[in-house]
Design a binder for these strands. Structure first.
Length: 509
RNA sequence: GCCCCGUUAGCUCAAUUGGCAGAGCAACUGACUCUUAAUCAGUAGGUUCGGGGUUCGAUUCCCUGACGGGGCACCA
């Protein structure tokens, strides 16, 4: 940034103060938003009433002793007409010191210009905030945008500019708020209680993932940022909150791409006396409710696919889906056959892999990407589901669990929750054994959680929904970053403290 | 972590085979009392992402680093 571009505007601040104008006043009485003025424009034009609106100047077309401007207020642009004879000579001098990007408030009457554009003929105005850093200039004519500000990285880093300059970005985050509100309403209306549980945890659990670590100074001990909401919420089931949910941020120390951000918003709810079948019905309803609200229809295109949320979501067993794609009977064929199939595809099989892991790999490799329409994949292997209850029909190998897939991406994960404390302890011990063998995502035994289950946890269904991903569908985003206000980016000016960071990263591996 | 592409004025973009780094908008000065990508005249504005190399000469070619995008791997 050349300093003179900023200095010019700072100099104008001094000039304004000399003219008795405070460039950063405390408040402004506005009577209407820009949208409201335009809404009832005919009536206001006829009545000659005075309106007061405020917004950021995005276009200036001065013509000597008169000028047109557009200001933008809450995403709505409206044209202003300034005339020296109307505002007075002194005020017009002040007007001449305004720049693109300044925020002003105006009072005036509603008029249509010669070309018919509804506008405000300004009688008086206040400068509300002087901008000293030049805004990127985006021009527009008849809906066609010129010099659009579209650099993806810049839009993420300086989202505030993206919001000023790109109206569709504003709509994305309105849709996001709509989805989140709808999810809350879905659960609130069914008697679920919203709660908050700790982000900082001495032991992390509830999912297969690597955590972020931090340090508590006073206790001089490490803490983990939670990777899931699961365990504290189940303790609340033990405590007698039969329907609870938390809608909040979790953190996973893994790669970033268009469907992964290190922190993301998760909705988890726990529903006593229900099983995973009922939870499937509810999730299906919640997806319909939130998508209908945001998209206005349940059939639409996303990610290059025509999706149908109107029809009942498919419900298919994981083992059947694998059989359809590979011909393997993964529960009964010899493990070597499963390994061979994976090797064919060049999949690296970890040392510790049991049959359950092989089934998961086969699903990831052969099935996942084929699931375009909303599909509940049910009944996962035990080895990869240490918190889910054994399947009522196949206690040995399977658990009652489902994941919801759309366009090959996971959106929800749910179980009939494991409430048998003896089995739960055994599962944790199995996980510990896997960890010994090198599975660094195996879950850690949480004695405190186990004790709570030992007091008696009601049978329950539990569900986790990836809210950001749902918002991607709702707001027609292509990347998670499109629906996060401030997605994580590397620092712009190189990396500070290279050495330290390098070591910490290696420790985490 | 790997592969591919990109980074030039405040913004959007040019620059032929390696030969003086340009335009529009924004800024500044002036004209203009219904314009709308306002118009007209003029002025100023550059570490061509950083570092190194090849060359008489590098925005351009080579090496290296940073950042961004896309893909792969990992994961939700």
């Amino acid at each position: 940034m050349r300093p003179e571009l900023i200095q010019t505007r700072i100099d104008k601040i001094a000039l304004l103060r000399e003219l008795g104008v405070e460039p950063y006043p405390y408040r402004f009485d506005r009577t209407h938003t820009a949208a409201e003025v335009l809404e009832g424009f005919e009536g206001r034009e006829a009545s000659g009433e005075t309106v007061a609106v405020a917004g950021r100047i995005l276009a200036l077309r001065p013509m000597g002793k008169a000028a047109f401007a557009h200001i933008q207020d809450s995403g709505q642009k409206i044209q202003l007409y300034f005339k020296k004879d109307d505002v007075g000579e002194d005020a017009y001098k002040v007007f001449k010191l305004l720049d693109l990007g300044d925020i002003i408030g105006v009072r005036g009457t509603c008029i249509r210009t010669r070309t018919g554009e509804p506008s405000i003929a300004v009688q008086s105005f206040d400068l509300l905030s002087k901008s000293i850093r030049p805004l990127p200039v985006v021009k527009e004519k008849e809906g066609q945008v010129f010099d659009a500000w579209q650099d993806t990285g810049e839009r993420y880093r300086r989202r505030y500019l993206d919001l000023v300059l790109n109206p569709e970005t504003r709509r994305v985050f309105q849709a996001r708020a709509d989805v989140i509100r709808t999810l809350r309403e879905s659960l609130d209306s069914r008697g679920f209680l919203e709660v908050e549980t700790p982000v900082l945890q001495a032991i992390y659990g509830g999912a297969m993932a690597r955590p972020f670590m931090t340090h508590h100074n006073a206790l001089d001990m490490p803490f983990f940022l939670r990777i899931a909401l699961e365990l504290p919420l189940k303790k609340l089931l033990v405590g007698g909150f039969d329907r609870v949910y938390e809608l909040s941020r979790v953190f996973r120390n893994e790669g970033m791409d268009r469907s992964h951000n290190p922190e993301f918003t998760m909705l988890e709810f726990y529903w006593a006396y229900a099983d995973y079948n009922e939870a499937m019905d509810l999730v299906e309803t919640m997806f319909r409710e939130s998508l209908a609200k945001a998209r206005g229809s349940l059939q639409f295109e996303w990610n290059g696919h025509a999706l149908d949320f109107e029809a009942p979501f498919a419900r298919k067993r994981m083992v059947d889906l694998i059989q359809e794609q590979t011909g393997l009977d993964v529960l009964n064929d010899p493990e070597d056959a499963l390994r061979a199939k994976l090797k064919e595809r060049g999949v690296k099989i970890p040392e510790f892999a049991e049959r359950g892991h092989l089934i998961e790999e086969l699903f990831d490799e052969f099935v996942e990407e084929t699931l375009i329409q909303p599909t509940f994949v049910t009944d996962h292997p035990r080895a990869i589901s240490p918190l889910a209850k054994v399947h009522r029909k196949d206690k040995e190998q399977l658990v009652e669990r489902y994941e919801l897939f759309i366009c090959g991406m996971e959106f929800a994960n749910a179980f009939s929750e494991l409430n048998d404390p003896i089995d739960q302890r055994q599962r944790f011990e199995d996980q510990a054994a896997l960890r010994e063998k090198g599975d660094d995502e195996a879950q850690v035994l949480d004695e405190d959680f186990l004790q709570s289950v030992e007091y008696g946890m009601p049978p329950a269904a539990g569900v986790g929904i990836g809210v950001d991903r749902l918002v991607m569908i709702a707001a027609d985003g292509y990347s998670l970053r499109d629906v996060l206000l401030f997605p994580h980016m590397r620092p712009e000016e190189g990396r500070a403290g290279d050495d330290e960071e390098g070591e910490a990263a290696e420790e985490g591996e």
